[in-house]
Design a protein around this nucleic acid. Structure first.
Lengths: 143, 143
DNA sequence: GCCAAACAGGATCCTTATGTCCAATTCGAG
DNA sequence: CTCGAATTGGACATAAGGATCCTGTTTGGC
């Protein structure tokens, strides 16, 4: 449902937020987030184009967030790499098909809207503040 | 966010429901739903494999729903062609990354869960019953 | 100034999704 | 039985997403 690119961008953003405001090298982020480094580099370049991160070349350089983690929402990241496409008009521009498929797409769009709202409501800072949520998703297999 | 294949399957399912229990030929469905026929054929074969539709070959044959529209939900169709992948475990199986990315994926999964619930709550019959929803998505450009 | 660290960006490759085409098969009807 | 309607299924084509590699450019520190 979510593309790899979005997943990678989110991982990188969260990791950067956790280290904010210290810059991290692409290699460090790749290691920490388990993302292929060469590809992560491309993803980060996309985030740079959208003014989400700052990329500093040269020795001692690295990647850093342009804004405070408390000012960045999940939606900001998602929309930077793969904007959520709301369904504004029925994909079928037919005069004859009645309202049937409309109601389908209306339902689909409501789900998109719901997701959009949820993503807009959570900042990276809030993600980091959460201590041991009720449903831990990270139970390692190692004891 | 939704693949073409899912979109096509949903269109076909809704159209079939609207004609239920009469079978429709693939060509008729393709025409009504604006889906390339040759590809629709493949999609329908997928729906057949999941026992959603019945395909009758030969003259007078066609496509028909196996179940009543009131017994088929949007989720049934979606899961038949491209199952919604809930995030059950953190994609990063790291012992060292703490709970940070967990809270991210927890949020993402909540959106998936919400969508799943919404799709499971609506049957094809209900879609057909809806008259002129408050937000019409089908305003044709033609007067 | 030189060197090593670190990003930049183009070329390339692999896989998957989407879409097309055609010969084969099934089956109802005359 | 024969013919045409209709799906079947395999091969093929195209495009996009995901991933890798290599060379160039920038830049801080010695």
């Amino acid at each position: 449902m979510f593309s790899q690119t979005v997943e990678y961008a989110l991982r990188a953003a969260v990791h950067l937020a956790s280290k904010s405001p210290n810059p991290q090298t692409t290699a460090e982020i790749a290691e920490a987030t388990q993302v292929p480094m060469a590809y992560l580099s491309k993803v980060l370049q996309g985030l740079r184009a959208k003014k989400i991160v700052h990329l500093q070349r040269g020795a001692g350089g690295g990647v850093s967030l342009v804004h405070e983690p408390s000012q960045l929402t999940i939606l900001d990241i998602v929309n930077s790499v793969e904007p959520i496409q709301r369904i504004k008009t029925c994909p079928l521009e037919l005069r004859s098909h009645g309202t049937r498929l409309c109601s389908l797409h209306s339902r689909m769009d409501e789900s998109l809207k719901s997701m959009e709202s949820a993503f807009a409501a959570t900042t990276l800072a809030e993600l980091l503040d959460e201590r041991n949520p009720s449903i831990p998703l990270c139970e390692g297999t190692s004891s």
